[in-house]
Design a protein around this nucleic acid. Sequence first.
DNA 1: CGACTATAATTGGTTGAACCATTGATTTCA
DNA 2: TGAAATCAATGGTTCAACCAATTATAGTCG
Lengths: 243, 243
Amino acid sequence: MREFRPVATRRAFEEIASQIRGRLARQALRAGDRLPPERELAGQFHVSRNTLREALRSLEIAGLLELRKGATGGAFIKEGGGDAAVAGLADLYHLGTIKPEHLTEARIVIGTEVARLACARRTKEDLAALEANVTAAEDATRRGDVVQRAHVNYEFHRLLARAARNPVLTVITDALMEMTRHFVESVGYMPNRYVMPSRRRLLQHLRAKDGEGAALEMESMLKRLQRFHLARAGDAGKPRIRS
Amino acid sequence: MREFRPVATRRAFEEIASQIRGRLARQALRAGDRLPPERELAGQFHVSRNTLREALRSLEIAGLLELRKGATGGAFIKEGGGDAAVAGLADLYHLGTIKPEHLTEARIVIGTEVARLACARRTKEDLAALEANVTAAEDATRRGDVVQRAHVNYEFHRLLARAARNPVLTVITDALMEMTRHFVESVGYMPNRYVMPSRRRLLQHLRAKDGEGAALEMESMLKRLQRFHLARAGDAGKPRIRS
DNA sequence: CGACTATAATTGGTTGAACCATTGATTTCA
DNA sequence: TGAAATCAATGGTTCAACCAATTATAGTCG
């Protein structure tokens, strides 16, 4: 496999970020903890404040830290929420590495399994939240508020993923919804008549904990949506190219 | 849903990064292009070089730029390779948000579908690369080189994901393998006798383009691996806690 | 002429000191 | 007591250097 590793001409800020990452990985630093002020940390690492800031900046972008200003401010360890991973995947869509057809296909693959797992693990609370969401989507549809409806629909998938109780699938679903949102905004909101009935059937399967039924329902809905989306993508789709 | 967006008290470097991101998204900047030197860019944005550097740093961490030193150096637009997304997901594992049981479950879900798709789309070249990989794994096994064997095995899943021709699944697989690598390193390398025979059967399905057979083979192998892994995780597993 | 070598130019990496802007705590005073 | 003024802590930004790596270029010697 790899015969040689590139000789690590490590930059100072990388070394610092790596040390802080290490303390996070070994749980010496936990969510909510605050790092010392920049000026003090710079002293501890024997680097200038600018260099230290680049290290903190890299950790902030990676989603590990949150920097707050003010008297009680500082660098706080963030709860691992996967924002960075979501942004990283979304960037791949913006760059064109991920194309609409990849997105729709991934949604089918992931969504189907999420539905299956959610059936097995959903709590009463999950079910209530999902039912409230579907009701809200139906309201928005009746009002003809396509934007609101689209956002409620993204939220449905996120809720379902959380009900599946697997953070890997949660983060992936969040990323897929983020990409879908960009896609839909670039081709325009598209009303259709089959999503809401499908939602109702899906809720039935969830109530009955019928994983296979839920998976099939989700798969068929997403495949229909795929055809719908890709037809649009042909015209206006893909990361929009402005002049 | 969201009633108010947090008022964006945007920092200068964020505004700069956002502008560059925008030019990337609209393809005004493409992979391989070089941005002007820092000193010049700082002038264009009317900010200090330090602030500009924080912006470039954030884009570098996000995997969008690569900074090279020297006379022909500068900030180059990177090919969208998903490194940042992989690192973001791996961080979630280090932070403990993703636990070994989530990881093994996600591998089953994703790996099964990857195997199915790879069957449908693999080229002769994919097949050849996979066969060479399995041969290399058998060699390493014979030599008792567990470390090498583990790395060749991760590579197998990556090759299979590339054969599936969907960059979403590629990136997710890369991330899952990265997490698996950390997991295995924390609990120790574990030889077993069922992976290599499974690989051979999987290759047969790939040759025959038997998607269903490949999916079943992969699923059964990964489930067996899951039991094996989680048994270990009970003792030493999870992101290792050192004193 | 050609290959090697010293030099210069370009570019990112780092430093240190200073000042600005925001935030929360403290003090002041009606 | 409570509202307003003040202070202190902290991240954000600026500026002006200098360091270090890398490549292009000019020079030198065989």
